[in-house]
Design a protein around this nucleic acid. Structure first.
Lengths: 208, 208
DNA sequence: ATTATTTTTGACCATCCGGTTAAACTATTC
DNA sequence: GAATAGTTTAACCGGATGGTCAAAAATAAT
């Protein structure tokens, strides 16, 4: 047999690609089948329905993303090191998976309940993540700031430029090459920006 | 006649609502017609096709958004005042139009060319916006930083928490009331965060 | 080798959906 | 008030789309 991959994996790979790019309503079962190089009926043979297949892809994708994020922040490092590594890793990762984050956000916008099932299967508790950041803010920088705000700030500075790429690029007429440079610059700029901001709290003493 | 609104406006209002929430492929012409309280054929009578109607809504929405953004940054104020006002305004505006930004991003992700036509109709040149910010960074804070990075930072800190709301809220199990508080807090936190970050550059002298 | 089981296919179905058309209704013009 | 133009509707069309099914092909079990 030339079946280098088994059918189920081929389907999942194709479904991932199509769903990530086009979302649930934009994707076509036929397109997924074609991409996987199989008959459309097989999709229903392995996964009951379009929705079931989508849910599978969503769960998978979300877990992957969540794991990558928490993994770094739960490791043994200073907060600033974590931020540096996270930002760096993320820009690299996402440049090869540009649709992923938006896919997750859209899927959740469309139907927030989707996350329930997934979050339970997850081994990481979000509370632990926040608590870890809170402790590090306090102990390493003497800051009593809500860790959620800081975490959201970090994500915003990293994720927004990626999902808004078409927006930014077209508005400011930036060619692809300069855009690549732009992202490369952000690997340094974002950690510096955050560090400056946090240090500012130290001197200011205007806590939130 | 009881036609409080003319038909065209009723259609546009309905189309806005549906397209904003569900996007092009997720929206149904019948649903728009129902919401507008008219016959489906009328949609085609006033706007040729689904695509034409969508394009109309997109243009309209994008312009509204872009104008709001640039208006503030091109006014006569210190950069920090602009940032404060912008952040404040945006959280207020968006809480009543939560789907808008994501709608624009998705529409552009789906088909980047969409922006071409719109940008030409726009009276604001993006270059002027950046140039204004650059000048203010230099003159008011003595900073030689790429204004695009700063602008993107601001947008990221404001927009990301809004479009990722379902994500954030479900992951961290935040009830609606606490989420409202969260956004209210950000009106202060974000400007402070940015101000600290920028001041950090001043003392650091580690320019980018 | 034969049977039983799993995998794959092509033909098909019902429904959805964007779009068309002709006729009905309304408003305007003369 | 008849003629004309503009607006609205219901019925319909054709193709796309998610999904089914029975039979064929491949694989495994005896």
């Amino acid at each position: 047999m030339d079946n280098s991959q088994n059918t189920e994996d081929k389907i999942l790979a194709a479904a991932r690609e199509v769903f990530h790019k086009k979302g649930l309503s934009g994707a076509r079962m036929q397109e997924i089948a074609d991409l996987a190089g199989i008959n459309k009926s097989l999709l229903h043979y392995y996964f009951r329905s379009k929705d079931a297949l989508f849910e599978k892809v969503f769960t998978e994708t979300f877990s992957q993303l969540a794991n990558k994020m928490t993994e770094i922040f739960l490791s043994e490092m200073t907060l600033m090191s974590k931020i540096g590594i996270f930002v760096n890793f993320y820009f690299n990762f996402i440049s090869g998976h540009s649709y992923i984050v938006q896919f997750v956000i859209n899927a959740l916008q469309d139907k927030p309940e989707r996350i329930r099932e997934v979050i339970l299967k997850q081994n990481v508790t979000p509370e632990i993540l926040l608590e870890t950041i809170r402790k590090q803010l306090k102990e390493e920088m003497g800051l009593d700031i809500d860790p959620l705000h800081i975490y959201v700030n970090i994500l915003g500075l990293v994720i927004f430029p990626v999902i808004a790429r078409p927006l930014i690029q077209s508005i400011f007429a930036i060619p692809d090459e300069r855009m690549a440079v732009f992202y490369e610059q952000r690997k340094k700029i974002v950690p510096t920006f955050i560090e400056n901001a946090l240090k500012g709290y130290e001197t200011d003493r205007t806590m939130v």
